[in-house]
């Protein structure tokens, strides 16, 4: 799993710009015109990405593994 990657996506239609992800994980998310945007879509596994996805009240953030399985948020 050392060389594994995670994939981050943000649904801009769900995002309401709370800024939770961008301040909890500024190394991964930024608000661009009030909409969250991943700084990189492919990232090394990082708990902060999952925490941000779990904390999003709109469930706008999805974290997947390289096989497309959803890692966060939990259903």
């Amino acid at each position: 799993m050392v060389s594994d990657y995670w994939y981050i996506s943000v649904d801009p239609y769900r995002c309401v710009g709370t800024g939770i992800c961008a301040s909890a994980a500024p190394q991964h998310f930024a608000l661009v015109n009030d909409v969250s945007t991943p700084l990189a879509e492919r990232v090394a596994p990082d708990q902060a990405v999952c925490d941000a996805a779990e904390c999003c009240p709109m469930e706008a953030i999805t974290v997947r593994d390289r096989d497309g399985r959803i890692i966060a948020p939990e259903p």
Binding site: S23, A48, D51, E54, C55, C56, M58, E59, E74
Partner: peptide, 17 residues
């Protein structure tokens, strides 16, 4: 964060839209 996020995520799931 990250302490805040660790706790918030436990309860955040109950308050999603």
């Amino acid at each position: 964060p990250p302490e805040h996020t660790r706790i918030r995520r436990l309860v955040a799931r109950a308050f999603t839209a």
